[in-house]
Amino acid sequence: MEADKDSEIWYAMRATYRREPDAMRLLEKENFGCFVPMQYKISIKKGKKIRVLVPVVHNLLFVHARPSELKRVKSQVAYLQYITDTRSGQKIIIPDNEMQRFIAVAGSYSDHLLYFQPDELNLSKGTKVRITGGDFEGQEGIFLKVKGARDRRVVIAIQGVIAVAMTTIHPNLIEVIK
């Protein structure tokens, strides 16, 4: 699914050897949209506990750019690579609406979000839902039980790349999408 050459599309990419901050700076300098899912972790520096914002999955970033411009920049930067679908070998391109939903949730940097590799969840067992209130009002996802959580959660997935499970949401704030 290669989009027409002059429109911007979202690509799932890797920045090898944990160079996602370098890649983000470079891509933002080129005026590309970038997103790296981040999360706060507690680390100890000089004997003190501090909260540090770190990438959820090292080497993963999402880039919003025109294919021709991204190809030009990528040819100059060896550590920037496309993520491809293992079955088809095609570059993974994420639809705008799916990416906007993912950014709305993952961009909150909440400690209560759980992240999963695509093969860790069986999304077909869940129910498609829309959140009707709270911080994530209007978001759509799959409502299912995830490991590491007592109750069911709403999951937003980027097919073949990553999935994020939201914090516990009261059942009154969820409506099933038929």
Rank of each mutant, 00 (worst) to 15 (best):
K5H: 06
K5N: 09
D6C: 04
E8Y: 04
I9H: 06
W10M: 05
Y11A: 04
A12L: 02
M13N: 10
T16D: 09
R19T: 12
E20K: 01
P21T: 02
A23K: 05
L26Q: 10
E28V: 09
E28H: 14
K29R: 15
F35Y: 05
V36D: 06
V36A: 03
V36N: 05
P37V: 05
M38S: 08
I42W: 14
I42A: 15
K45T: 15
G47E: 07
K49Y: 11
K49N: 14
I50C: 07
P55G: 07
V56R: 12
L61R: 02
A65E: 04
R66W: 02
P67I: 08
S68P: 00
S75A: 15
S75P: 03
L80H: 08
L80F: 07
D85I: 02
T86L: 13
R87G: 06
Q90P: 00
K91C: 01
I92D: 07
I94T: 05
I94S: 07
P95S: 09
D96A: 01
D96H: 09
D96I: 03
N97F: 13
N97R: 11
E98K: 14
I103R: 01
A104T: 14
Y109W: 13
Y109F: 14
Y109R: 13
D111H: 12
H112F: 13
L113W: 06
L113P: 03
P118L: 07
E120I: 01
E120V: 04
L121E: 03
N122F: 00
N122K: 12
G126I: 04
K128F: 04
G133V: 04
Q139I: 15
Q139H: 07
G141W: 03
F143T: 02
K145E: 08
K147N: 12
K147G: 01
G148C: 07
R150M: 09
R150I: 03
R150Y: 06
D151A: 09
R152L: 09
V155I: 10
I156L: 11
A157Q: 13
G160W: 06
V161Y: 05
I162A: 03
I162N: 02
V164C: 10
A165P: 05
H170M: 12
H170T: 07
L173W: 04
V176G: 06
